[in-house]
Computed example of a mutant assay.
Amino acid sequence: MIDIVVRVLLMPPMSLIMLILAGYALRRRWPRSGRAVSRLGLAALLVLSTSAGSLLLVRPLEQLTAPLADARASGAQAIVVLAAGNVHAAPEYGGADIPDDIALLRLRYAAHLQHATNLPLLVSGGNGEPDKGIPPKAVTMARALREDFRTPVAWTEERSADTTQNATYSAAMLKAAGVRRVLLVTHAMHMARAERAFRAAGLDVVPAPTMFYSRSTLSPLMFVPGWSGMFRSYYATHEWIGLAWQRLR
């Protein structure tokens, strides 16, 4: 429930739309203040819906980590890749659930690292609903790695519902197998929060981030509002809120 409230009230674009509407409501009693609030909300909505504008939120997050230099020299004993989302009942796969596009980007890099190092691989992600025939995310991830990326999976952590639980449950499985140092695969924007969670769970973490959106070359199209820019702003806002909550806890 709290997660839903956060998504509705604090995340763009809804938070900015609410700010615009609040400005219109204020205009009845305070015309100048109301117009200022509405204009601020509209300006923020336009800026953050561009890929260039989203860099205001994305770049500071991605600067908290760095690309992995040499996986084979990392001293890691295993690879951990974190879930994102699922596509339910994909018709082109015979109605099976499959990892969404965000998860696939992580899986591709995890497969690349596994082929380079031959390290055992753990996939982490729950949110399954057995009564509805919805498998945990780790199950669909493992299937994609084995069938589509020809990559073996040693462990599937199927209970977690968030990053903290990813770390807690994965760490328990890995420690039982004698693993203490891991390559952690997730999006660059998510890495700071994920790394802290896994370190708090008692693992030695070697960050292996993927998808550095802020390193792409600026082009004129990046200043045009669109879905891509808003998605990046939404994702970055989610991570900033997550980091703040992590510090408070």
Rank of each mutant, 00 (worst) to 15 (best):
G85Y: 05
G85F: 08
N86W: 02
N86C: 05
N86E: 12
V87Q: 11
V87L: 13
A89P: 01
A89V: 02
A89T: 04
E92C: 05
G94Q: 11
G94T: 04
G95F: 11
G95L: 10
G95E: 10
A96C: 07
D97M: 05
D97T: 00
D97F: 02
D97Q: 05
I98P: 01
D100P: 04
D101P: 02
I102L: 12
I102G: 05
I102D: 01
A103T: 15
A103H: 01
A103I: 00
A103M: 14
L104V: 15
L104T: 04
R106I: 06
R106W: 10
R106D: 09
R108A: 14
A111L: 11
A111E: 04
A111M: 13
H112S: 15
L113P: 01
L113R: 00
Q114A: 15
Q114F: 06
A116V: 13
A116R: 15
A116P: 05
T117A: 14
T117S: 14
N118I: 05
N118L: 15
L119A: 07
L119I: 05
L119Q: 00
L121S: 04
L122A: 12
L122I: 04
L122Q: 01
V123E: 02
S124F: 06
G125A: 10
G125D: 02
G125F: 00
G125N: 04
G126T: 03
G128D: 03
G128W: 00
G128M: 07
D131Q: 13
D131W: 14
D131S: 14
K132C: 08
K132T: 10
G133Q: 04
G133H: 07
G133T: 10
G133S: 05
I134D: 01
I134V: 15
P135M: 04
P136D: 03
K137C: 04
T140Y: 01
M141W: 02
A142M: 09
R143S: 10
A144V: 10
R146A: 14
E147C: 07
D148G: 06
D148Q: 13
D148F: 11
D148E: 15
D148L: 12
F149K: 01
F149D: 06
T151H: 07
T151L: 09
P152I: 09
V153C: 10
V153K: 07
W155L: 05
T156C: 11
E157W: 00
E157A: 05
E157S: 07
E158C: 08
E158F: 03
R159E: 14
R159V: 08
R159A: 13
R159N: 12
